[in-house]
Write a protein that binds this DNA or RNA. Structure first.
Lengths: 152, 152
DNA sequence: GGTGAAATTTTAGGTGC
DNA sequence: GCACCTAAAATTTCACC
């Protein structure tokens, strides 16, 4: 899918504020509302825009603790790995989790109400899984950048 | 701000799909459209819903390479640190960046078109900054979970 | 790509429980 | 606090040029 400068501008604005009206966005980009709407529809049909979602403020939601966790898995049993993957996907505390190269097998970002809740997450969930060999917690002190837009 | 089960359900649905109509969401939650609308408005006013945004698919956008990068800074000069922070905030490749405890001073997730583009990011940007002592790249092989909703 | 109009949704306001 | 009703305003959506 080929994108011109207007397309990129449209996508940048929509990532920051998808509630903007077609007319206002059309003005910003310099085209008519219907032409703009057709482009946006094309992005949706192509799957470039996967969805539209509300973005919450974790602090206001009462979730004041975040950490980046490095996880090493045990080197046995693929069914234990599947169990790990499924468990991660269902745990609300895990916001993102990636299989990576390097020292850690997985990197994940975890959010909790406080340190006590995080300790509970570790003791009663993560360290109880057979697939988990070890995990290192890196507490997030400050966000330099977050929820940033993808700029194609 | 106190939240009941309905509030949590509303927030969960809106994070996954903010384009749903008030009437449909009201049906799912089991309340009238006007009552639902007042709750959503309250979330926005309280800042719990910070914004609404489009979520792009990186693959479709032609961005096929991602990595988690650990960064250590040099122990001198706070103005170099400020320069680092500002540079990170303006670089499109950096999707998120957190100051953390642990071995690395910063954890960030970076996205690029391909390995070549990532090499360019390292050579011509990250390693050129005086504040950066060292950086370890952890290539993302697979996403177990991403763009997950916050569940208050 | 633009114009215009129909269809739908949003955003209120008011009433009573 | 919620449900229900009503209606104006705004927005989305689409046929046609």
């Amino acid at each position: 899918m080929h994108l011109d400068d207007r397309d990129r501008k449209i996508l940048e604005v929509l990532q920051a504020d998808s509630r903007i009206s077609n007319a206002d966005l059309a003005d910003q980009v310099g085209m008519s509302a219907s032409a703009l709407w057709r482009r946006v529809r094309a992005f949706e049909d192509a799957g470039l825009i996967a969805r539209y979602g509300a973005v919450l403020d974790p602090e206001v939601a009462g979730l004041g603790f975040q950490a980046v966790v490095h996880v090493q898995l045990t080197r046995h049993k693929s069914e234990k790995l599947d169990e790990f993957v499924r468990a991660i996907q269902t745990r609300r505390e895990v916001l993102e989790c990636y299989a990576t190269t390097g020292q850690a097998d997985y990197h994940m970002r975890v959010i909790c109400a406080d340190l006590k809740a995080y300790n509970d997450f570790l003791e009663n969930f993560l360290f109880r899984m057979e697939a988990v060999e070890s995990a290192q917690t890196n507490v997030i002190l400050r966000a330099i950048k977050k929820d940033a837009a993808i700029l194609p």
